[in-house]
């Protein structure tokens, strides 16, 4: 296919993905808005006011970047995992397999679709947070880069999950047993400097810590860990997952017999 045709094919997938999650907005866009507002009210306002400072900021200021990132992560992931799995389940994935679209276009299309939902939800949550606190923007480029990379990374993860899944149960295992614990332990609600040294070391194996910390740095200008290390870690994870996903797709894992 010529590059113009590739671009048309790519935008076709992206449009369809965006159409999907906007059509079912009560399932995709509304729930995170409600959940995050509850977090802001309960943890930020009610409990946060008794906690005092965290990492040099009010507790509300501290958790807002973490909660925005958490929304980006879960929404990028779940958009791709549910969309691609249901394409497998309803077999309309065959529409793509029979077409001349190369696999990397299919993968990229789904990733951009996941990014779109992650970023839109992140934006909604950011707007809601403005009712509770004043957000600074310490480094906009850092915010943009880390948000994009994180959403790519988790959208890709969602794609891999969908390829491996054989039932609707399989698409909730990773979010429930891996993603949620990693996010909660990834410095969304506390600074890892509160932890004993051993657990600080363990925490550094958690990739989500790097994303949350970098994003928080972009907003507040302060971070638990070195920003450049963080970026490097995120890039390595993103590139590796993309390579894994593409090679699985080329082999037809879970979609071709």
């Amino acid at each position: 296919m010529k590059s113009k045709e590739l671009l048309i094919a790519l935008t076709t997938i992206v449009r369809r993905e965006i159409r999907r999650f906007t059509r079912i907005w009560p399932q995709t866009l509304l729930p995170p808005a409600i959940t995050m507002t509850l977090y802001f009210i309960i943890f930020g306002n009610l409990i946060g006011s008794r906690i005092g400072q965290m990492g040099g900021f009010s507790y509300m200021e501290f958790i807002v970047p973490g909660l925005i990132m958490m929304s980006v992560i879960t929404n990028s992931y779940s958009n791709v995992v549910s969309s691609f799995y249901s394409a497998k389940f309803q077999r309309n994935v065959e529409e793509m397999l029979v077409s001349p679209m190369p696999n990397w276009i299919i993968l990229t299309g789904y990733i951009i679709g996941g990014m779109a939902r992650g970023i839109i939800v992140g934006f909604i949550v950011t707007l809601l947070s403005l009712f509770f606190t004043d957000l600074q923007l310490y480094s906009l480029p850092t915010i943009i880069v880390v948000t994009l990379l994180t959403s790519i990374l988790f959208a890709t993860g969602g794609f891999i999950n969908a390829m491996l899944a054989n039932s609707f149960d399989d698409i909730s295992i990773v979010p429930t047993f891996i993603l949620t614990p990693l996010t909660y332990l990834g410095g969304v609600f506390y600074s890892i400097s509160l932890l004993p040294e051993f657990w600080q070391g363990v925490s550094q194996l958690n990739p989500i810590l790097y994303m949350v910390s970098t994003f928080r740095y972009g907003i507040l200008g302060s971070s638990d860990i070195n920003i450049y290390t963080s970026m490097a870690v995120i890039v390595v994870f993103t590139v590796s997952l993309f390579a894994i996903a593409l090679s699985m797709l080329n082999r037809g894992r879970g979609i071709r017999t």
Binding site: E5, L6, I8, A9, T11, T12, R16, S99, P100, M101
Partner: peptide, 8 residues
């Protein structure tokens, strides 16, 4: 959408 997959 199918037409789009063919780059039309």
């Amino acid at each position: 959408t199918q037409a789009g997959f063919y780059g039309m």
